[in-house]
Design a protein around this nucleic acid. Sequence first.
DNA 1: TATGAATGAGCATTCATTCAT
DNA 2: AATGAATGAATGCTCATTCAT
Lengths: 193, 193, 193, 193
Amino acid sequence: MVKIVDHDERRRAIAGAAIALIADVGIEHATLRPIAEKAGVTTGAIAHYFKDKDAVLEAALQMVGARLFALSTNGAEGSKGRPLKYVDILPTNDVSRMAWKVWLAFCGHASYSVRLREIYKRFYTDIETAVAAELKITDRARARDVAATIIAAVDGVGLCATVLPDMWPPERQVARLTELLKPIFSSAETSPK
Amino acid sequence: MVKIVDHDERRRAIAGAAIALIADVGIEHATLRPIAEKAGVTTGAIAHYFKDKDAVLEAALQMVGARLFALSTNGAEGSKGRPLKYVDILPTNDVSRMAWKVWLAFCGHASYSVRLREIYKRFYTDIETAVAAELKITDRARARDVAATIIAAVDGVGLCATVLPDMWPPERQVARLTELLKPIFSSAETSPK
Amino acid sequence: MVKIVDHDERRRAIAGAAIALIADVGIEHATLRPIAEKAGVTTGAIAHYFKDKDAVLEAALQMVGARLFALSTNGAEGSKGRPLKYVDILPTNDVSRMAWKVWLAFCGHASYSVRLREIYKRFYTDIETAVAAELKITDRARARDVAATIIAAVDGVGLCATVLPDMWPPERQVARLTELLKPIFSSAETSPK
Amino acid sequence: MVKIVDHDERRRAIAGAAIALIADVGIEHATLRPIAEKAGVTTGAIAHYFKDKDAVLEAALQMVGARLFALSTNGAEGSKGRPLKYVDILPTNDVSRMAWKVWLAFCGHASYSVRLREIYKRFYTDIETAVAAELKITDRARARDVAATIIAAVDGVGLCATVLPDMWPPERQVARLTELLKPIFSSAETSPK
DNA sequence: TATGAATGAGCATTCATTCAT
DNA sequence: AATGAATGAATGCTCATTCAT
């Protein structure tokens, strides 16, 4: 009889611990020992589930990307208007703030890691596709461009708010993003078919 | 017999070497020895000019911030129209790309360093002030908000283009930023006084 | 319901896998997991058959020693002359080369392990006895000494040929060993009783 | 003014400490920390003088090889007869025993390291040349072969005596080696020109 | 009997920092 | 002012061993 372990569940626990730690102390201080501690395992156990530290970090980025992707496509509960929908992803609460901190922490590494860049690329492509799909624009190429514009706007506000939370309280984030997105959504080409 | 040394010049050389190295190999691999080598000094010499490694990194961020600030306020030579002006700062060439890479690399650390965050804060405040000053808006609070919106738009495009240069060639950067800024600059409130 | 397992057969399989791996990658890289893999079992299973890793290595040395002993006493098929007989044990083919590599690999450890030294001692004593028995010398003490001389000669050629196979091709091994052993076997005292 | 350090002297000290430790505890337990301790430095200091641990071990083998080479070519003080000369290199005292232990310890690794094998090759070539040069044989190819025979004999006795010192006291080493070498040196072809 | 998950000590290595010169 | 040797703590990683199943 073998010990029953949910491999994926274990990997998720470790990657989750890595995310929490990166948000806590920064990616530079997110070393394997405290990650293991936070996950309730030992460093040796991590070796069972990940090839090396980079694999742990990749899994963490993947996980945080999925969280942000979910937020960006599902929006939050009460949102009705379309422009406001993308507002739900902004770092306006502890949960999304943590995700943004980690997402940004990896940005600085993406230039030097093929693996990381691939993850970013896939997420950006997926989000662009999802955002474009929701636009009432028939020209697909044009739709992708508008989607890219929307994503850039969200990223810009999110970046500022993550780096300088004091200068960018939630209301300001929403107001500035709305100012950027309103013209795009009120333009004729995006009006309902 | 005292050796004549230009202290500030030495500090600039070391900070410049740090910037180049960070852009080259990433902030995580930018260690003191290669920085010293690139600057043409020894590690021991760095200790004369900087308290510790963090001080070197601070100076590097300060320097790269100044470069980006200059680009954002002066624009490039041939730019005439206002929306296009902010386009000149985007990572569309090797020089600005290097600056963005370094700027973003530090973003991930700003959350955990008071000193770094202060540098970011000062630059953002200065840029917001400079951008607001160029707007034809009499309400100063409103002007600062519009300026913040513009900065967020530039940051968003710059972030995307730095992380995924393949998906964001120069023309796309300009087109998306223009799409975001045009409505702002063509609105009544910003029309010339 | 008891699973029928041949204990000794299992031990032999594991020790054999250890020998093959040591010959392949060296004793320093012969770790338990790949040994287990090669033997078709798991690391945990090894614990059932061996007290610890040292016990596995001991079994491997024992096994390789037995192989070399067999070669040294039986000689190979076609050998008729006495001097040539000891030639059959030399590392002149893949099989004996593997045995020598492993035998030598353990030599470096014998100084620090009582168990290993005991194994070496037993084999050397047995071989000395066997070789002495084949000599036509009536003085038993003298016979043992001559046997030791013969063994040293074989060991010397085998050592050189194992460490530097390029400089010691099979013919050279045979020629040099013959040069050393001929005078011994042609001396009067070893002539047939 | 820079700190004055004799680079080579430091390297020798560290390599010497490695030799002593390998002889003491075996190559498998000769780790960097105790080597550093024995050399009176810290592990970090070793990094100044050697690229990595392998480089330290290489230097150690080189050093021990040089010691054995010196013994084999110079012989010891009182030796007059030629056959006895090669006797001086045998592991008959603490100093030479240590050298043999280390030399043998590396034998097991030479099959898996190009660098180590090169060191062995160079030493064996040099010794063969030196031994051949002392023979009164005009045919150079024949001289090298006889030299190889002599070296194999010495190696064989040294190997046995190092692995099983109890069975191979100094007198036995000398007697067995003499038995192997006497016929070679008394043969006509090697008699004084 | 057998599994393979988990442990944790030990390893080589890196690197900011210190300091005698 | 400047050197670069030296420190030593910290890191990622390996691996023999243990043990619940």
